[in-house]
């Protein structure tokens, strides 16, 4: 297991916090918690069961935050998700946090 932390520039504030996914084989859970007032970055902590993919994580996350600059505290608990699954879950979290019709998952 490896814990990685990243920070990305992010100027959009999510209207609500969200929880997505499960720490199941090939999957991950994401918690997006609201940022402190005036924060213009996303703090990301990744805990992953697979060691040694620091660069891949950085690339996947930086591509996501370049398109979706949602600030806040992002926690990713990963159980061997592929980069594709990670991206899908990130997009799902962003949609749930910003989508007009989605409700906050407690």
């Amino acid at each position: 297991m490896q814990t990685l932390t990243y920070q990305f520039r992010a100027d959009r504030t999510p209207p609500r916090r969200v929880h997505i996914g499960v720490v199941a084989s090939g999957d991950l859970e994401i918690l997006l918690d609201l940022p402190a007032e005036g924060t213009s970055h996303a703090d990301v902590r990744v805990r992953t069961s697979v060691d040694g993919f620091d660069t891949v994580w950085h690339d996947v996350l930086s591509r996501f935050f370049a398109r979706t600059p949602l600030s806040g505290r992002w926690e990713l608990n990963d159980f061997g998700a592929t980069p594709g699954v990670v991206t899908l879950r990130l997009q799902q979290a962003a949609e749930a946090a910003t989508g007009a019709d989605s409700e906050e998952k407690p």
């Binding site: 297991m1 929880h19 720490v23 069961s49 608990n77 407690p106």
Partner: peptide, 28 residues
Amino acid sequence: TRVLCGPFDRLESPWLEPQGIVPQSDDG
């Protein structure tokens, strides 16, 4: 539905991370 002790309460297992196992925020 009203969830109690949900993910944002972060009641994780304290025993997994020391064993190198990724915990889940609501302990499953």
